[in-house]
Nucleic acid binder design. Structure first.
Lengths: 136, 136
DNA sequence: GGACATAGATACCTGGAGGTAACCATGCCA
DNA sequence: TGGCATGGTTACCTCCAGGTATCTATGTCC
């Protein structure tokens, strides 16, 4: 066996559990956070009402939307504003902090759009199952 | 209430469930995939033995490592090579496809390192609990 | 003989993410 | 009177990612 493979020094000493790279992943840990961040940023002033968001994110449920938004509020990513009107109206706005997280998101999304072919090339389990006997 | 907020057109029509941005998120859906991708890339030729990876990723368990690696193999991100030696030796190499996914990762990780302060500013539930009464 | 290292397989368990559906309060409108 | 829309909340359920522990096989070394 090749020596070159044998000896591999523990290069990433600082790849600890609380390093920045690992922590940024937490943003993507909850399914909808990044998408809400994006959806908000896509609006004027990073503000949008609940219903608008609900309709902007195909597939999200009312519950998951509010739940995620509340978590994001607790994290300091968005601020919530309630209008005492009736029927009730609520909107959410990106905080300055929340705004900062838009950049890495767009970085990622941008790459994804430019590299859709790579994503297509990925043999997802799903795709695997569906394709398996299809042409074999 | 401000009109500007009321009328918000469904701007992201193509923000469908299978759009590129959404699909790229799947890479981060499984906890270790991105980190393994990075760890492999950090080696010469994107190749590393199981044990090396195990030690490179603090916190990962043997099971999760193999499991994730096998999933990645099925997705076409890495290739597995077994040496008929004893004790057994196995190594994994980034495929060309796998290599392509390193870029967005590093994009993200790079941002994270440069913006550690933003990550610190995030009021994680964790941090919230630990800090709550600490200095208040 | 027994420990260690190699790379796994396998059984087992659990938390919680994420989803569904029903309910609430209210005013408008037909 | 009943339906609709507003933004939630709540109860409930399921699934599986992710983790633990134990077992395999084999050769070397003490």
């Amino acid at each position: 066996m090749p020596d070159s493979i044998m000896m591999a020094p523990p290069a990433d000493d600082e790849w600890r559990e609380d390093c920045a790279p690992r922590r940024v992943l937490e943003i993507f840990a909850s399914k909808w956070t990044s998408m809400i961040l994006h959806a908000l940023d896509a609006r004027h002033g990073g503000t949008a009402r609940t219903g608008v968001l609900l309709r902007s994110l195909p597939g999200i449920s009312k519950k998951m939307l509010t739940q995620t938004l509340r978590d994001m509020e607790a994290s300091g990513l968005v601020s919530r504003r309630v209008y005492g009107t009736v029927p009730p109206a609520v909107d959410y706005t990106l905080t300055p902090l929340g705004h900062r997280f838009v950049e890495p998101l767009e970085l990622l999304y941008g790459w994804a759009r430019r590299n859709a072919d790579a994503l297509d090339a990925l043999t997802t389990q799903r795709t695997l199952r569906e394709t398996s006997k299809t042409h074999g």
